[in-house]
């Protein structure tokens, strides 16, 4: 029984690759009438599979990037640190990653620039796309009761355990008062349900799936740090930014236009989801929609960075004015 959502997710991921190619060529066709006649620059971008990628595909589908004068070739990635080497080696022009990975990479000396904001969580805590969840029959109702227990995160030493650490500190515990275990999102609901871990930090659409199985939300890690916390970011290499100012500006314009369109009419984006990601219409109606801001939110970065230094992910703070260009 519990395997069905997982199989569905796998199919969605597989279909995503196919539909990604499909929508790409569709928009190419419509752009001919749209106004990219002078042969806009083509940029290769990879973004985390799921909502971050849907965002780009929505912008492509709606012609926002063509209007801005850039053709995007968007592909799915597993996000985080995995795309940075591809970016540095020149296989990608733009990488969709997360702010933690990029700040670490930057502090280690990789010449990166954040050019635009990726996903942010909603300003409404109820609509936060992250959640700390426990089993339906768990006696735990508050993060303060997790002392000494196992908690699942998808990746250690990244955004999810950082925001969790902040929540623990707020509850009077410390970052290392729980035993963090790395479990992939799709496997997390089963691990929580079986009692293997006491709780887990999940993101959409796994939250919606887990809620259907009767699991409970006991906290909102992202909003808890800051409502509207920026998680995703678009990065380019310093060299590319210096040499392609027009393309960078065009990409930023397209991101901003897409972000504004989704903010103005989230329901239209929701309706497009089944086309973009081949996720089922029912699921699309229920998932929480992320927020996109367009421009990088330095306040979010500063908050995350302070925690990273506190928890030992960064030795020293990076110069955000150097790192962020849009």
């Amino acid at each position: 029984m519990t395997t069905w959502p997982r199989i569905g997710a796998a199919l969605a991921a597989a279909a995503l690759l196919v539909s990604g190619c499909g929508s790409d060529s569709d928009s190419g066709g419509s752009a001919g009438g749209g106004g990219g006649d002078e042969g806009p620059v083509t940029l290769r971008v990879a973004d985390t599979n799921g909502a971050p990628l849907y965002f780009l595909q929505y912008g492509i589908q709606q012609g926002f990037f063509e209007d801005a004068g850039v053709t995007l070739e968007a592909t799915a990635s597993s996000g985080g640190a995995t795309v940075i080497p591809q970016l540095v080696s020149g296989d990608l022009d733009i990488a969709g990653s997360n702010v933690v990975s990029v700040m670490i990479a930057s502090s280690q000396g990789l010449p990166l620039k954040m050019v635009a904001a990726g996903t942010s969580t909603s300003e409404e805590p109820e609509q936060d796309f992250s959640a700390l969840m426990v089993a339906g029959d768990s006696p735990i109702t508050d993060i303060g009761q997790l002392d000494g227990q196992k908690v699942a995160v998808n990746t250690l030493r990244n955004i999810n355990d950082i925001v969790l650490g902040h929540m623990l500190e707020d509850a009077g515990l410390s970052y290392d008062s729980v035993d963090l275990v790395e479990i992939p999102f799709p496997d997390m609901p089963a691990a929580i349900e079986s009692g293997d871990v006491a709780a887990g930090v999940l993101i959409e659409p796994f939250i919606t799936v887990a809620e259907k199985q009767g699991m409970k939300i006991i906290g909102r890690p992202y909003s808890d740090l800051k409502p509207g916390l920026q998680i995703g970011t678009y990065v380019m290499t310093e060299q590319f930014v210096n040499e392609n100012a027009d393309a960078v500006a065009a990409f930023q314009e397209g991101v901003q236009a897409t972000a504004d369109a989704i903010a103005e009419d989230p329901e239209a984006f929701r309706k497009a989801l089944p086309d973009l990601g081949d996720i089922s219409p029912e699921l699309a109606e229920q998932v929480r929609i992320n927020l996109w801001k367009g421009e990088t939110d330095k306040e979010s970065l500063q908050l995350v960075q302070e925690l990273m230094v506190e928890y030992g992910l960064l030795e020293d703070e990076v110069d955000l004015d150097e790192l962020v260009v849009g």
């Binding site: 640190a81 940075i84 670490i104 990746t155 963090l180 790395e182 479990i183 992910l313």
Partner: peptide, 20 residues
């Protein structure tokens, strides 16, 4: 996948943390 210690885990964490 799903480890909290070990050499393979260390290598992967280092790779993710760009500690080449």
């Amino acid at each position: 996948v799903g480890a909290s210690n070990g050499v393979g885990h260390t290598v992967q964490l280092a790779q993710r943390g760009f500690n080449i």
